[in-house]
Design a protein around this nucleic acid. Structure first.
Lengths: 245, 245
DNA sequence: CGTAGTCTTGAGTATGGTCAACCGCGGTGG
DNA sequence: CCACCGCGGTTGACCATACTCAAGACTACG
C-alpha cells in the first residue's frame, strides 16, 4: 500500500497530477510527526532549514511583539504547506504552534529545491499557491486596516469556513472553529473582550449560531456584506500550470 | 546594444545569473510602457492575463472597500515584480496605479510560465522572492493588528527606507517618500489627519527631519524600537537556489 | 492670481481597549 | 466523591487612541 500524500490530494483537486509527481510529493511526507495541542513546532529566530506539510489537525503561525501582544499571522489546515520562509531566511520570522493535536510532515528545504528542479509543474503549482496565500494576506490586511470590529469577525469566520470547505465536503453551514476568542482576537487585531461582544451581538442578531464550540453561519449573504468578504476560491484557476501530456 | 533588465539586475544582486537566464529575463521587459502619475495600470475585477516588471518610478496596489475607504496593499519600486495574482485569478484582486511617472514592462502570464519551465533556477528565485513578499506582508499585518499609530508610521518609514537602499546605494539617511500623508495613512490603516499628527510629533522629538518632501531618519535605533521593526534584508540568503555550474 | 490639492491644527466624538468581577466547566488530586 | 483550580467566556464601568468635521495656510501650477 502506498502512503497517500494529503498535499498531493489537495493539489489534485485543482489539476491532475502524474504518478511520478504524486510519488515525489508523497516523499515530502515520509516523516510524519505527531504533535500535541499547544506544542511549539518552530520558534521565532530559531535557525530553520525545514518546511512542513500539515496532514492532520490545525496549526497557527504568529509573532509576539515586545510588549507581549501576539499577532496570529495565519491559521493552517490539513493539506497546507507551512514555513516556506525558511527557504529564504535562515532565522524563522514567525513561530508555529499546534492549535490542536496534529500531524506534521517536516522535510528539508533542499528536498524541496530538488523537487522543484525535477518537476516544473510542481514548481508552477507552488508558485500559484503562494500567490493565493499572498492574496489571502492582503485581504486580511485590508480587513485590519480599514474595517470595523464586526466586519473583521464576520470576514474571519467566512474565511475559515470557506477554507475548511475546500477539503471537507461534509461542511454545509456549520464548523468547529477550535479557536478561543483570544486567538480570534489575536488574528484580527482585537482584544478577546471585544471579540466576545461582537460574537454575542451577531448571535443576537441571528447572523450566527453557537452550540458547544460549533459555529453556524445563519445568514451568509449578510455576513459577506458586513465583512466586505470575497470568496477567492471561486475565481481560482490553475490552468496556468503546464498541462500533463 | 542590449537592453538591460532591471529585474535581472535586481536578482543578480543576490545570486549570479547565467547569460541565458539574463537574456530570458530581459525578454520579459521587451515592451516597456510609460505611464503618467496617477494612471490606472490595472483595475480591480478586470480580467487580467498580464504581469509587470517595474522599471522606473513607483506603483502601488490597493483595494477600495464598499464604504469608499482605500487600503494600499503594497508600494513598488524599480526592479519589483508586480501583479503575479493574475497567474491564479482571472479577475484582478487589486488595482494598480502609478504613484509617479513610471515605466512598466508588461508581459503575458504564459510567457512567465514558459520561462519557469525552461529556467528552474529562475523559478526557484521567484519562489524565494514571493516568500520574501509574504513575510513583508505579515510584518505589516502585525503592525496594523497590534501596534500604535506612531509605531506604524515609524516602521513604514523604515521599511520604505530599507527597500530603497537595496537598489540605491546613494541613500544614506534621507529619501524622497513621494507619498501624500493620505497615502501613508491608507497604507498603514490611519487617517491622513492622524498621520500628520504622528509625523509632526516625531519631527518635534527629533526622530525624523523633513525638507521639501525629503524625509531624513535622524535616529534609526529609536525608530526601530518604536516601530518594532526588523530589517529582513539582512538575514536574506538566496543560497537555496541551485548553483550555476 | 485663482484654484486645487495637501498640510496643519483644534474641538468634539466614538470605537475599541482596560480593568475587574463573576460564571461555568472540565480536569485533578486529596 | 467532591473540593479546588484554572481557563475561557461574559458583562459592566470607565478610559484612551484614533476618527470626524471643520477651518485656515501653504504650495504648485495653470
Amino acid at each position: 500500500m502506498v502512503a497517500t500524500s494529503c498535499f498531493a490530494d489537495r493539489l489534485a483537486k485543482h489539476v491532475p497530477l502524474s504518478d511520478a509527481e504524486r510519488k515525489a510529493l508523497t516523499r515530502l511526507e515520509e516523516n510524519p510527526r505527531k504533535v500535541k495541542r499547544g506544542a511549539m513546532i518552530q520558534r521565532v529566530n530559531d535557525t530553520v532549514t525545514e518546511l512542513f506539510v500539515l496532514r492532520e489537525g490545525r496549526v497557527m503561525s504568529f509573532v509576539i511583539l515586545p510588549d507581549g501582544s501576539r499577532q496570529i499571522l495565519r491559521v493552517y489546515f490539513p493539506g497546507d504547506f507551512i514555513g516556506s520562509a525558511s527557504t529564504i531566511y535562515s532565522k524563522a520570522p514567525e513561530s508555529l504552534v499546534a492549535l490542536s493535536d496534529a500531524i506534521i510532515c517536516p522535510f528539508d528545504k533542499h528536498a524541496l529545491r530538488r523537487l522543484l528542479e525535477e518537476y516544473p509543474r510542481v514548481a508552477a503549482l507552488l508558485f500559484l499557491l503562494s500567490n493565493a496565500e499572498r492574496v489571502a494576506l492582503t485581504d486580511r490586511l485590508a480587513s485590519l486596516g480599514r474595517t470595523s470590529a464586526k466586519a473583521r469577525v464576520a470576514s474571519f469566520l467566512l474565511d475559515i469556513f470557506d477554507r475548511l470547505r475546500v477539503t471537507d465536503d461534509s461542511i454545509v453551514d456549520s464548523f468547529d472553529l477550535k479557536l478561543t476568542q483570544e486567538e480570534i482576537g489575536d488574528a484580527i487585531g482585537l482584544t478577546s473582550v471585544h471579540v466576545n461582544r461582537m460574537i454575542r451581538r451577531m448571535e443576537q442578531e441571528g447572523l450566527i449560531g453557537r452550540a458547544n464550540g460549533r459555529i453556524t453561519l445563519l445568514d451568509l449573504a449578510r455576513l459577506e456584506e458586513i465583512g466586505h468578504y470575497t470568496n477567492r476560491h471561486k475565481d481560482m484557476d490553475l490552468d496556468w500550470v503546464p498541462s500533463l501530456n
